[in-house]
Design a protein around this nucleic acid. Structure first.
Lengths: 225, 225
DNA sequence: CGGAATGTTGATATGCCTCAACTAAAGTGG
DNA sequence: CCACTTTAGTTGAGGCATATCAACATTCCG
């Protein structure tokens, strides 16, 4: 979430936009990218590939997010980034131009730094979520995070936001087998608080879901809206 | 891992050192610290506390690491940091002094930024480790990471490094019950590759352990030594 | 129409959690 | 000095949650 001033600074750079389709990679583990992107539309996901090809999703990016700002200062990528939906659009900024902008004055640099730090806070929450919570709580927490962030990005309409993932991907996010995802989803649905179907997440009873999830949005470090 | 130039810049600041004992908190979840620390000696750990008091360890810090640099730009802490051993010593830098230093010129700012990005890479690896790997592989990977980082910090002697944790804390790191930790530790010990006892980690057969762990140090983003 | 992708449900197997008992070492106080 | 307590580690037994295997439903697409 950049300020108007930050956005103005970015607009002084020449950038281009690119569009991606579902499961299409923007960058791959091992790459050394020369550009960083900001999400304009649609959703992206970060994942790692293990020996044997197994995939672990790490985090998800909505409009306004910077999924690979760490690449400005780290060389080789330790993960891949793919688009989740059809027509995901990103703005591409060359690293050297961003570095120049950052070097010329702090505000935009601090803002991007801050973005990478909130990204890390989301990673911390994911460790705790996947390591210390029950299946149901874990899934509820994931839904709460996505929904809360989508709300902040003004992407919630009719208590619903887009979450273009298959159940198998949900499993590769939360560290559960596909069958377990399906059953856990069923048990959450039966609470009447949440529905996830056809790539859409609908939360009908936020308080109940947040209670199941033990969700506290503090870690997202949003300022008062 | 800062350059000599970075260290010289830091020395222009007035800082003080503080010493902590085992399980003593440096900062707590919810705090708004005004200073950041660099580890001088001993080991620190980051952890989150869940509803009900359950604890999840997130990451560990050795000499030279910056465990709470994110606090320079994020207000409220989403986690706590404690010392693991007796006589853990840190250098304390006031945020406003660090911000001043960062604002005056990029090198040190970039270096600290980079530290926070490597920290995030370690968090990504932890998500994958705790979510997608078997108990044995997970524990082996954790040992490999600590040992590798300790090696880089010149803290390995006689194939052994200090890792002042109890088995219960290992469980709260890897998302396993204490009993499972004990048995997994036994099965690793029986491979003859590693021994963890009395707060000391001894790796006698690195290649075997790294193979069990599927360990690839790339994500630590070390430059050629 | 046939095939692929995704979701659903049942049955079985297994890894891990929980409970419990016990050992060893270290610290404490009478 | 020696009971007593506390802490950490170890081992066994049983049960539950989740992984795995399998069958089938539904939708979409060529």
């Amino acid at each position: 979430m950049l300020t108007a001033e930050d956005e103005a600074a970015l607009r002084t750079l020449s950038y281009r936009t690119r569009e991606f389709g579902p499961d299409e990679d923007l960058v791959r583990q091992g790459d050394t990218p020369q550009a960083a992107v900001m999400v304009i539309e649609g959703e992206l996901a970060r994942y790692q590939t293990l020996y044997g090809g197994k995939r672990q999703y790490l985090s998800f990016y909505l409009a306004g997010d910077w999924p690979d700002a760490q690449g400005i200062f780290l060389e080789r990528l330790d993960h891949s980034i793919c688009a989740l939906n059809d027509g995901a659009i990103v703005a591409v900024f060359q690293h050297d131009q961003l570095r120049g902008l950052i070097g010329r004055g702090p505000p935009i640099g601090y803002a991007i730094w801050r973005e990478t730090l909130i990204d890390a806070a989301i990673l911390r929450a994911a460790i705790t979520n996947n390591s210390a919570r029950s299946g149901q709580t874990r899934m509820a927490h994931f839904f709460c995070e996505i929904f809360y962030r989508a709300g902040r990005a003004r992407l919630v309409h009719d208590r619903t936001t887009s979450l273009p993932m298959r159940q198998s991907q949900l499993g590769e996010t939360l560290g559960m087998a596909l069958v377990t995802v399906n059953r856990t989803l069923g048990s959450l649905r039966r609470t009447g608080a949440v529905e996830f179907r056809d790539g859409r997440l609908c939360i009908t009873d936020w308080n109940t879901l947040a209670a199941i999830a033990e969700f506290d949005p503090e870690y997202l470090h949003y300022r008062a809206q």
